[in-house]
């Protein structure tokens, strides 16, 4: 190295440090910027005409009524939660089970194949999933369950589950892979069966990572728009069974924002729904964080 270059070395270090700092800080900046933008778009109405009571307790969502406009989002909130919950009910056991299988039971060659398939599954655009829900799942549900309509909560939940499983599997598998092999050796040498090793050693050792996997899956389910819009039937009601159509918060924004006049009350309420979604995912993440910390402290 020439003396001149060596002279530049501290500057280079400094530049790299600044650049990495900028990358980190920009992430925070963008999150806040998005939040502020979404909030600003809905702020006017939020502080003047917005009726929180109606929004959270009424199921009457008539944003374009000529005589009596009502913005009751309870059915939409229930829709989002019921579809996401059912989706997780299906996806978490399958996802974690698949992660355990791939990391602990699978012969190496099958493992490579499976991982490629799972990545592929994660790469399918959501509109394609929606299309599958609209056509294949739709007729399948009508035929199998004798349901009046195949576009319903169950359909949406299966599609969402299929979309979340790849995330849960790949992050869950990473978490299990990160468990030191010495733990497995210790367990095996003490005479554990495979299941004892998995339930008593691996799952507890990997729980933070597995929890993160589940949380990301939930995040995906709550935030997903296009697929649920196409698969759930998009009808505003509180479902009494899994075979009834529902409508979610996200699908409502996607379907109505294009038609709502900019800065109208309707437009602003849709942004308030955006804020609500933001809050939901925020709360999920914070909860996950607290759970992880709580576990870590013990």
């Amino acid at each position: 190295m020439t003396p001149g270059r060596r002279h530049l070395e501290p500057l280079k270090e400094w530049l790299i440090e600044r650049f990495i700092w900028l990358c980190g800080v920009s992430a925070i900046f963008f999150v806040f910027a998005i939040f502020i933008f979404v909030f600003r778009e809905g702020a006017d109405y939020f502080f003047s005409g917005f009726k929180a009571g109606e929004f959270f307790t009424s199921i009457e969502w008539y944003p374009t009524s000529r005589t009596h406009v009502r913005y009751g989002a309870l059915a939409l909130i229930t829709g989002t939660f019921s579809v996401s919950f059912l989706a997780m009910f299906l996806a978490v056991p399958f996802g974690l089970g698949a992660a355990v299988f791939i990391s602990e039971f699978c012969p190496p060659r099958l493992k490579e194949g499976l991982k490629i398939v799972i990545e592929l599954l994660a790469a399918i655009p959501s509109v394609v999933w929606g299309f599958i829900g609209l056509t294949i799942m739709n007729s399948l549900i009508v035929r199998l369950f004798n349901a009046p309509i195949g576009l319903n909560m169950f359909n949406g939940a299966i599609i969402l589950a299929l979309m979340s499983v790849p995330i849960i599997v790949s992050i869950g598998e990473d978490a299990l892979k990160a468990v030191p092999d010495s733990y497995r050796e210790a367990a095996v040498a003490l005479g554990c069966t495979r299941w004892q090793m998995i339930f008593r050693v691996l799952l507890p050792a990997a729980r933070n990572g597995l929890l993160a996997a589940v949380m990301l899956g939930i995040g995906r389910a709550v935030g997903e728009t296009m697929a649920v819009l196409m698969a759930t039937g998009h009808s505003i009601r509180i479902p009494h069974g899994v075979l009834e159509p529902v409508r979610t918060l996200t699908a409502t924004i996607a379907a109505e924002l294009g038609e709502a006049p900019v800065h109208s009350d309707h437009y602003q309420v849709l942004f308030i729904i955006g804020i609500l979604l933001f809050t939901i995912t925020f709360v999920i993440n914070i909860t996950a964080d607290f759970i992880v910390r709580g576990i870590g402290r013990k």
């Binding site: 050796e185 367990a187 005479g191 069966t193 050693v201």
Partner: peptide, 29 residues
């Protein structure tokens, strides 16, 4: 077999549990 033949490894590898749980682990399984 592994119950009657214990093994100690090169790097200490206690399980990520408490001291107490580590010792009763074998009895439990």
């Amino acid at each position: 077999l592994r119950k009657s033949v214990g093994m100690v490894f090169q790097r200490p590898n206690p399980l990520p549990l408490t001291v107490y749980e580590n010792i009763v682990f074998g009895l439990h399984i």
